[in-house]
Design a protein around this nucleic acid. Structure first.
Lengths: 200, 200
DNA sequence: GGAATAAACTGATTAGACTCAGTTATGAGT
DNA sequence: ACTCATAACTGAGTCTAATCAGTTTATTCC
């Protein structure tokens, strides 16, 4: 075998496998019971690792949720970004980025809201948190790109507007009072707000 | 003594005194050490009540913080509302409502951020939480009033815009990445965003 | 005054996230 | 092959918010 074919020793491989088992275990348990009703002990047991080991891979339970949900969020963003390209109206195009994110976030309302809570209030120096922030930044870039594509607004204004759009979207999904609302209602609520932000 | 002069029996008076002692104890301890570094036990001890009694007056530690901070927030709103009247420019007037709220929220950054967290994610059926929501609603009304005072925007649009303003304000104050920023920087950040919302 | 009823109170106990002192596995140097 | 150093792991233990079965205190009604 070539020198580069096995750059990972047993140690690195074990670590990767453990992380995979943790991700799978947390993912399944969170999806089935909701974050609140799953203990870190259950996750450790299902991943077949010690209690303490879990916290070497994610410093808090919240980080564990970020780890699990980031992938879904990133995929939703990708879908929306693709959709937006073929939508002529700017507001509609922005909404085609927003919609998949809301849908993804609302697959399980509690998990979605807790995910947002962790993003806003969690520790940004933790790896999974900073990955989440990077996806948010990408979301704002995608929205800014749509806003700026007709040359009607400056790049600066597009970026600021995109930031407002994510703020509106986050709060609509997060607030307790909206917890019981349907995806459609939330999307409509967001649309009403950002329609006031469109270039006039 | 007249029949009406003592409408409160001993029971009601005791309850009120206890609530006062709890509010005072929590207020002092939170202000001195920050919510995170104060245990509910310390608050109960300082208020001279049993551990369990505390939770008859506030169902969670978060509710206790809402109880303490609501008063300050309401006062800040009142100050801002008064200031705004004498400011001719609409954007400046909105900012004179925003500024005292930010200042009040940032007296102790951790407490301010935790307060916002409780408002967004807490249980709206709890009394202190619902009071907080009522102050938010009043904030939006005050901002909407300023936005609509020149007759440039419809009442509906003013209300929606005011809602966006509070969303922007909340997130600017809440996000971990802004935790270290000065009041001035936060205010400027909010101003930049809401300037794009002004009637054009 | 003295039951009877209900509201308010209490602290020992529980549950669950997270820590840390001690152990084990891996890889590097010889 | 055999140290030695270090990274990774472990689960018993800690800390603290929150609960609840049992107790005290106030009020009502005779």
């Amino acid at each position: 075998m070539s020198v580069a074919s096995q750059p990972l020793g047993r140690r690195e491989r074990n670590k990767q496998q453990k992380l995979d088992r943790i991700t799978a275990a947390a993912s399944e348990l969170f999806a089935e019971h909701g974050v609140e009703d799953v203990t870190t002990q259950q996750i450790a047991d299902k991943a077949d690792i010690g209690t303490g080991t879990l916290f070497l891979y994610a410093k808090t339970k919240g980080e564990l949720l970020l780890l699990v949900q980031n992938t879904h969020y990133a995929e939703a963003l990708e879908r929306g970004r693709a959709d937006a390209e073929s939508v002529p109206d700017v507001l509609d195009a922005v909404m085609s980025i927003v919609r998949p994110i809301v849908e993804c976030n609302r697959i399980q309302v509690d998990n979605g809201r807790t995910y947002l809570r962790e993003m806003v209030f969690g520790d940004p120096t933790e790896p999974h948190h900073s990955e989440a922030l990077s996806i948010v930044a990408q979301t704002e870039e995608a929205i800014a790109a749509v806003l700026g594509r007709d040359g009607l607004v400056s790049a600066d204004d597009a970026a600021t507007t995109a930031h407002i759009v994510t703020a509106v979207m986050f709060l609509s999904m997060a607030v307790s009072l909206n917890a019981a609302l349907s995806i459609e209602t939330i999307v409509q609520d967001i649309r009403t707000q950002i329609s006031l932000l469109m270039p006039r």
